[in-house]
């Protein structure tokens, strides 16, 4: 594949005395769908939050298209200004487990806000693009609805539209179907499949193994803050080498059956 969009080296993050990320190295190539799996507490979500500069980290480096994300330089320990962080985050989309839609804004305005304010688009242009993306995720008839008037699956599709409309270089998806009723998971994953087919670069934390198998280009298994196994989905999921991954996959399968 081409040169990496996202490059992570030696990423280390501690909460007090607990080491949550312990020297993670990871590259995501342009157009790649990289799926991260692992038990809760293995550091998957923290990894995504570090990439979007939502939390500081203790050591290592994260670069997006060669630009250091959270700090002025690798290892400098000097946090970038809020303005600089905002500019970098604008190029990284994020979809949250709990949706985190803005409850006071309609679906349309949820998507249009970043376009207007961050991208500086004229209102008409922003609204047109918001409506385009809402139609793309199958919500053409829900544009005026407030989040509270939408089902969980619909809310999450608004969440995806909000992130993708910004045309990010990288899309982070943090367990985006975990809070959904089982019958709503499919509609959300279908949207993600469509984005993958169009070449969107994605770093996705999920427990949906069947999705990882058929839509992921590469799977990473995280365990105790480290990358324990990595490879093409068929290999990693079909032929797990370590005892821990075998046990993890058995537990997941029991849950879904």
């Amino acid at each position: 594949m081409s040169e990496p969009v996202l490059s992570i080296r030696g990423l280390t993050k501690r909460f007090g005395t607990t080491t949550v990320l312990d020297g993670v190295d990871l590259d995501v190539a342009r157009g790649e769908v990289l799926v991260v799996i692992g038990a809760s507490g293995s550091g998957k979500t923290t990894l995504l939050r570090c990439v979007n500069a939502l939390v500081p980290y203790d050591a290592g480096s994260i670069t997006l298209d060669g630009v250091e994300v959270g700090y002025t330089a690798p290892g400098s320990g000097v946090r970038r200004s809020d303005r600089a962080l905002s500019a970098i985050r604008a190029d990284i989309g994020m979809v949250f487990q709990m949706f985190n839609l803005f409850p006071h804004l309609s679906a349309r305005d949820n998507v249009a806000l970043g376009l207007k304010v961050t991208r500086g688009m004229a209102k008409r242009e922003a609204v047109a693009r918001a409506e385009h993306w809402l139609a793309r995720v199958g919500l053409a008839d829900r544009m005026d609805h407030l989040p509270s008037q939408l089902s969980g699956g619909q809310q999450q599709r608004v969440g995806i539209a909000r992130a993708v409309a910004m045309e990010p270089k990288l899309l982070l998806l943090d367990e985006i179907t975990s809070a959904l009723d089982p019958e709503l998971v499919g509609e959300v994953l279908d949207v993600v499949r469509g984005l993958a087919a169009e070449g969107m670069t994605m770093l996705m934390v999920t427990h949906e193994m069947s999705f990882a198998r058929d839509a992921g280009h590469r799977v990473v298994f995280m365990d105790q803050g480290r990358i324990a196994e990595e490879g093409v989905p068929k290999e990693v999921l079909g032929n797990p080498r370590s005892e821990r991954l075998q046990r993890f996959l058995r537990r997941i399968e029991l849950r879904t059956e």
Binding site: F96, F102, A163
Partner: peptide, 12 residues
């Protein structure tokens, strides 16, 4: 999560 979502779309 509201603050984080607002950060994620690049708002200052």
């Amino acid at each position: 999560g509201q603050m984080e979502a607002a950060k994620a779309i690049g708002l200052s």
